[in-house]
């Protein structure tokens, strides 16, 4: 069978579908001081999943949406915030302010961050010493 680390080079999704791959990618991003980008990507996925689960309180969803907004979007100098378009940030801010919590409210922001990873940090990771040493 194909070793996992070769699969990681196929696509960003193959990498993010493997625990060891995520761990190594995160170590690399930490070195580059942008691990928040990966955490934000997973937080968006987790937020959508929470919404899909029955029995989760509305209050918890609101609290989580606020927490994601505060940690990653509010600070315009943050690594995540800098990669997200102003219109997307306004949309999320509006959702939080009006307490309009929607399962898809972070989707556009997640897509923008994902594109940035695919074009930037992911190719760099595949060329990094961390990845090459691992292989």
């Amino acid at each position: 069978p194909t070793p996992p680390y070769l699969k990681w080079a196929e696509s960003l999704h193959s990498l993010l579908d493997d625990q060891d791959g995520i761990h190594l990618f995160r170590t690399f991003l930490k070195q580059e001081e942008c691990a928040d980008v990966l955490d934000f990507w997973f937080a968006c996925t987790g937020f959508r999943k929470l919404e899909a689960n029955e029995g989760q309180g509305e209050e918890k969803k609101l609290k989580l949406a606020k927490a994601i907004y505060k940690k990653y979007i509010l600070d315009n100098n943050g690594i995540v915030s800098r990669q997200i378009k102003p219109a997307t940030k306004s949309f999320i801010k509006d959702c939080v302010m009006r307490l309009h919590i929607d399962p898809a409210m972070f989707d556009q922001a997640q897509t923008e961050i994902q594109t940035m990873m695919e074009e930037n940090t992911y190719p760099l990771f595949l060329k990094s010493d961390i990845y090459l040493e691992y292989t």
Partner: peptide
């Protein structure tokens, strides 16, 4: 009551793939 950070961490962990 969960702190915001705990809530975020829980959310991030829930999105990660489970060990194969």
């Amino acid at each position: 009551i969960d702190s915001e950070d705990d809530l975020l961490q829980e959310c991030i962990s829930s999105a990660m793939p489970k060990k194969k």
